[in-house]
Write a protein that binds this DNA or RNA. Structure first.
Length: 422
RNA sequence: GCGCAGGUGGCAGAGUGGUCAAUUGCAUCAGACUGUAAAUCUGACGCCCUUCGGGCUACGCAGGUUCAAAUCCUGCCCUGCGCA
């Protein structure tokens, strides 16, 4: 039985002048994503504190689950039996899964570090390989050529991910867009290690692609498997030479199919670690090389101010835990910058978080109420704050998309930046 | 009235002669958070001086012992429990 692989349709509708930015539309089996778009992170098949009904109302275009976490619990077979990630969580829109590559970093090199951000602000570069922490005691992830051996952060049990296993799990989970298994390195990793890791990530990318195709050709279940698409991930840290090399290798990586046709990745993830100031530069290097007709997902970024630069430098999709995590920690977005809702000054502030905001929270509740919910640790605080923050960031990116189409992105950016204190 | 237990920083509650301006939790006041080990984490928290550091006042009240007391002694005040 031979299926024609539909592949993913991505249409660029408008390109910005003098930058790499563009607006487009990405078609999935569960709906069209207008890009640029912000992807809501739903690691464990839940956008924390929100129901699928709520995320739909907020306007979330895609939900981003995590292979490692879903594999640990409830296990991919449960999700497969449920009918896939979307059905499992009662979400009818598009879904994506991360490959588990980020956990190589957060459970490996970053494990136990007070500073475990992938965004470095005060980097102390080193040339010592041991700083990567790949083999040290207590670390929960160990990397070798074949894959990564993990210890569960939950019960300490040992598990192993290979590119093939990650893809197999992602097929079972069944998201519309899945990612190749990669290694996200520490921002502190030296050039030599970054090169090693990048080259390994390239070999893993090819194995991921091969396994993805193999599972398709072996599959007797039609379902919607032939609509699942795979993104390859560009790495290379903060090094120009590596980033460009990675973009070239991943961008043109292809397999020859048994029928003679060639297939590469359906889109690209841009991963890894950055110094805050370098993000735009790195994106410019990478996106000038990646095939422009395919979508690019900037992994794990970002904050409002990061998004403008990322869009101008050619990215189409973004996911970030910031809005939901910040929300749960009482840090709320406003057009003038973040506010810490628990601060004493909001105890008697009976205005909404943002008067002009159209979200459910702002339409019904005051800062004083939110402040009270957080201070008294009421569970509703998480939900109301998450609704607001997600709405804020999703609509910010939606405005970006609209203004690109309308041709006044530059104006919108200027207006936003003039008000927002980062 | 008698017996027993006890009075410590906003609260709870450690400490029971020096290393105590005093453990810890809560509360309070700030800060952090970027492919979620995160409803988490960090810091400050008697007063004064510029940070290091230094000075001052403190463990119910008043005296005392001692080189040295939140810690020992005496008296007083107060609280809880039990007995009359």
């Amino acid at each position: 039985m031979h299926h024609i692989l539909k592949g993913m349709r991505f249409a660029i509708q408008k390109r910005m002048k003098n930058t790499l930015g563009r607006a487009g539309a990405l078609e999935t089996a569960h709906g069209v994503i207008e890009t640029p778009a912000f992807v809501a992170v739903g690691t464990k098949a839940t956008v924390k504190a929100l129901t699928s009904e709520q995320i739909k109302e907020i306007g979330v275009p895609v939900v981003f689950g995590n292979t490692y976490h879903l594999y640990l619990e409830p296990g991919e077979t449960v999700i497969k039996k449920a009918g896939g990630l979307g059905k499992f969580m009662g979400w009818s829109g598009p879904t994506m899964t991360d490959s588990g590559g980020f956990q190589v970093f957060s459970l490996g090199a970053a494990y136990g570090k007070t500073e475990r951000s992938k965004i470095a602000t005060h980097l102390q570069h080193t040339n010592k390989l041991e700083n990567v922490g790949m083999l040290s005691e207590g670390v929960l992830a160990k990397i070798d050529e074949g894959g990564v051996t993990f210890k569960s952060y939950k019960d300490g049990s040992t598990h192993r991910f290979t590119p093939e296993r990650s893809i197999e799990i992602q097929h079972a989970i069944g998201a519309d867009i899945i990612f190749a298994f990669d290694e996200c390195t520490s921002p502190e990793a030296p050039l030599q290690y970054q090169r090693e890791a990048m080259e390994r990530t390239h070999r893993w990318a090819e194995r991921s692609l091969r396994e993805h195709r193999r599972l398709f050709s072996n599959s007797h279940e039609l379902e919607n498997k032939d609509t699942q698409t795979l993104f390859g991930i560009v790495q290379g840290g903060r090094f120009e030479k590596l980033r460009k090399e990675s973009a070239r290798v991943i961008g043109k990586m292809e397999l020859v199919q048994p029928d003679g046709s060639r297939c590469g990745f359906d889109g690209f993830g841009i991963g890894g670690s950055f110094e805050k100031e370098d993000i735009d530069t790195v994106l410019d290097w990478v996106n000038s090389i990646l095939p422009e007709e395919k979508p690019r997902h900037l992994l794990g970024i970002g904050e409002p101010l990061d998004l403008f630069g990322a869009v101008e430098n050619g990215c189409d999709l973004f996911d970030c835990v910031a809005p939901t995590r910040r929300a749960r920690n009482g840090s709320l977005y406003t057009s003038r910058g973040l506010i810490a809702i628990e601060n004493a000054r909001y105890k008697n502030d009976f205005t909404p978080i943002e008067t002009s905001c159209g979200c459910y929270t702002c339409k019904h509740f005051t800062r004083a109420y939110l402040s009270h919910l957080f201070r008294s640790k009421e569970i509703l605080s998480n939900t109301l704050a998450s609704i607001h923050n997600l709405y804020f960031i999703i609509h910010l990116v939606r405005r970006i998309q609209e203004t690109i189409l309308e041709g006044n992105f530059a104006r919108f950016k200027e207006d936003f930046l003039s008000g927002y204190q980062g």
